[in-house]
Design a binder for these strands. Structure first.
Length: 688
DNA sequence: CTAGGGTTAG
């Protein structure tokens, strides 16, 4: 342990404002040089000496350093000593550099300082006054970047108002372009916490996190607990640090803080944990969400309805609907009642992620909700309308729309947009336009989303004139086309093999200052690929990457598909490997496309290799995988093998679809195979 | 601090 002896006898003052300044022979330069000679001592010793010098109790401000002595000695049998005397003239005195030994943690240190009286000194009270009045210019004349830290320490030691210290801390860091140590930072935070200036701590930590210095969380935690063991303050500061990371999108750091807070036993709050949960939901890191949620309950962190709703939302977004329902039970067990948001979230989950009969389940939840005396709101209806539209049941969506109005709920722009989109996707363009007109008559202004939906509908039907009119309409109504407008139109041109037009639009887009997304490029690359222009596709891929847009799974799927169609499945396989090195995860589609490529080349061995690679990637063969392989075997005349696969897929509980049926019927049934699965085959939807 | 609408591969 280092010990500072004769600390209280130190009577030092007035290195402030610009070092030691007296009528005596001791100058600021002298003082600094002595400071430099400290390098022969261990860092801890240096710091202690500095503190002894700068932080000692000198209330009268009339004393002046003349001479000091530092002694380091190891406890135990061996001991070494060293001393440094402040010289009257630095150029003529020797410094103890040549002593060059390092103290360790067992070294004892003693410091004694001799002082002499002086008169003209810049005292702490004056400094505080200047900071309080924010007379920064005047303050600046008293401070140099070498003693800025000294004043800070003096402020701490004089127990100045934490707000004053904070002001000086921020000002001097900026003024002298310095960064205070973590220790001083933690002392500041503790002093603010001691007077409950939490909003100050919050904004300070926000800036601290933004600066992104190389402080690790581990040293922050360590220093914070070294500076004070006030459990409550520590917990609050760490809680706010976590929130600061979340608000600055440094989720990884936030998670680290969360974990470490657990190790230190600091208590976090829902105020910071909820935003973290939500941030994780937004990036679909749902395993993390589940872990955090469990951990919050385990650590007895306060959880509230927001917490539950966020977790439910996360689970719904990835289709874990049963787990989401379990969380509803959890919250009831906590004595909390679900609210309209809870139910809306769950209904939306079923609408978007549910399997067969999902809309029935969504309706069932609606019923449950009403029975629990929770009134569906406009959003509830919007969710259901969208659900039915996406389920290709626009008429049911319209019924919900009627019901909504019967309940005296006002449809919003979003309601109309949802329906317009549903009608457009159903090819009912007249009705869609009718709804747009209805919006206008109700005083609801169609927005860019309305137009994007309509444009999409008209593009799909290749109604060029109407599409053009709609695009003109956007401008006339004072709306501005956005990325999605452009992407929709570019894709339409690409699908129509009008690549020049597509690239024209791409140019217009750039000129209007709208940044293309990866999707924009995907559309264009797919267009070029359809024309078999692999060279152009490659070039575009490069352009895309030059713009800092990363090729994604879709991009690779497009390229792999194109190569396979050209009978170059080997090259496509190289792209599959490239995906891994780019950190992208191939999807079922990726593997299936590649297998299909090999099958069409008649290379079944290669196709099966892809399948085993897929399984190594822990992707279970789906119905498309089987269709591709069965087709491959059939083309080769290996009907027994195809039969084996067909049985395998049935055993796995997969449902054959029209493609399966097609292949099997053409190639197998007529040749007398598969009597045992006939029953299944004739139940396939769409079969006669 | 939590819930709803528009484009894109196959």
């Amino acid at each position: 342990m280092l010990k500072l002896l004769s600390f209280s006898s130190c009577r030092i003052h007035s290195i402030f404002p610009s070092g030691i300044r007296t009528g005596s022979s001791v100058s600021n330069a002298t003082f600094l040089q002595v400071s430099n000679s400290f390098s022969v001592f261990s860092r801890k010793t240096q710091n202690l000496v500095r503190r002894a010098l700068f932080c000692s109790d000198t209330s009268d401000g009339s004393e002046q350093v003349m001479k000091f002595e530092v002694k380091e000695s190891e406890s135990g049998t061996q001991s070494k000593c060293s001393s440094a005397f402040l010289p009257t003239d630095p150029r003529t005195e020797d410094y103890p550099k040549e002593l060059g030994w390092e103290a360790d943690d067992r070294t004892e240190l003693s410091v004694s300082i001799l002082t002499s009286p002086t008169s003209n000194s810049f005292g702490i009270p004056l400094a505080i006054e200047l900071i309080e009045k924010q007379h920064w210019l005047e303050l600046k004349t008293h401070i140099t970047d070498s003693n800025a830290t000294t004043l800070l320490q003096q402020l701490f030691d004089s127990e100045a108002d934490p707000i004053i210290i904070l002001r000086y801390f921020n000002w001097s860091q900026k003024q002298f372009n310095i960064s205070y140590t973590l220790e001083l930072t933690c002392r500041l935070l503790h002093s603010l916490a001691s007077v409950k200036k939490y909003s100050k701590i919050r904004s300070f930590l926000d800036g601290f996190v933004k600066k992104n210095e190389n402080h690790s969380n581990s040293s922050f935690f360590h220093m914070l607990s070294m500076c004070s063991n006030h459990f409550c303050s520590n917990s609050i500061i760490i809680d706010m640090l976590l929130l600061a990371y979340v608000q600055n999108s440094k989720i990884h750091m936030a998670i680290e803080v969360f974990d470490r807070a657990g190790d230190y036993g600091f208590k976090l709050s829902a105020l910071s944990c909820n935003p973290l949960l939500y941030a994780l939901v937004k990036v679909k890191k749902v395993e993390r969400v589940e872990y955090l949620y469990k951990e919050m309950i385990k650590r007895r962190i306060e959880v509230n309805l927001f917490t539950f709703n966020i977790v439910i939302n996360g689970l719904c977004k990835v289709g874990k609907l049963n787990k989401a329902r379990d969380v509803i039970e959890d919250l009831k067990a906590w004595g909390i009642s679900p609210n309209v948001v809870t139910y809306n979230t769950l209904i939306d989950g079923y609408c978007k992620m549910g399997k067969v009969g999902k809309m029935n389940k969504a309706n069932a939840i609606l019923k449950e909700m009403v029975e629990s005396k929770i009134c569906p709101n406009e959003i509830t209806y919007n969710i259901l309308i969208d659900g039915f539209c996406k389920d290709e049941n626009v008429s049911a969506a319209m019924k919900v729309f009627q019901e909504m109005r019967r309940q005296d709920l006002k449809p919003s722009v979003i309601t109309y947009n949802t329906l317009v989109n549903g009608l457009c996707n159903d090819g009912k363009l007249d009705e869609a336009c009718g709804l747009r007109d209805e919006m206008l008559s109700l005083g609801l202004k169609p927005d860019i989303v309305t137009y994007n939906a309509l444009i999409n509908g008209f593009c799909k039907k290749k109604k060029v004139r109407e599409t053009r009119e709609l695009v003109d309409d956007i401008r006339n109504r004072g709306l501005v086309p956005n990325v999605i407008t452009y992407n929709t139109l570019i894709d339409a041109y690409c699908k129509d093999q009008m690549m020049e037009k597509a690239f024209d639009l791409h140019r217009v887009m750039l000129e209007s200052g709208i940044s293309p997304t990866g999707s924009t490029y995907n559309c264009l690359i797919a267009g070029l690929c359809r024309q078999g222009n692999m060279e152009g596709a490659r070039k575009l891929l490069e352009e895309m990457q030059d713009k800092g847009l990363r090729a994604d799974v879709v991009t690779y799927n497009i390229l792999i598909d194109a190569l396979c169609r050209k009978g170059e499945s080997r090259k496509a396989t190289r792209l599959l490997n490239a995906m891994f090195s780019m950190g992208l995860s191939p999807t079922h589609l990726t593997y299936n496309t590649l297998m299909d490529g090999y099958c069409r080349e008649g290379n079944l061995r290669a196709a099966l290799n892809v399948r085993s690679q897929m399984e190594k990637d822990r992707k279970v063969a789906n119905i498309v995988t089987y269709n591709v392989l069965i087709n491959g075997y059939c083309k080769k005349g290996k009907l027994e093998e195809a039969n084996r696969l067909l049985n395998e897929l049935l055993e796995r509980g997969l449902v054959p679809n029209q493609n399966t049926y097609q292949v099997v019927r053409e190639e197998m049934v007529e040749k007398g195979f598969l009597p045992d699965i006939e029953g299944h085959l004739y139940n396939v939807p769409g079969s006669s």
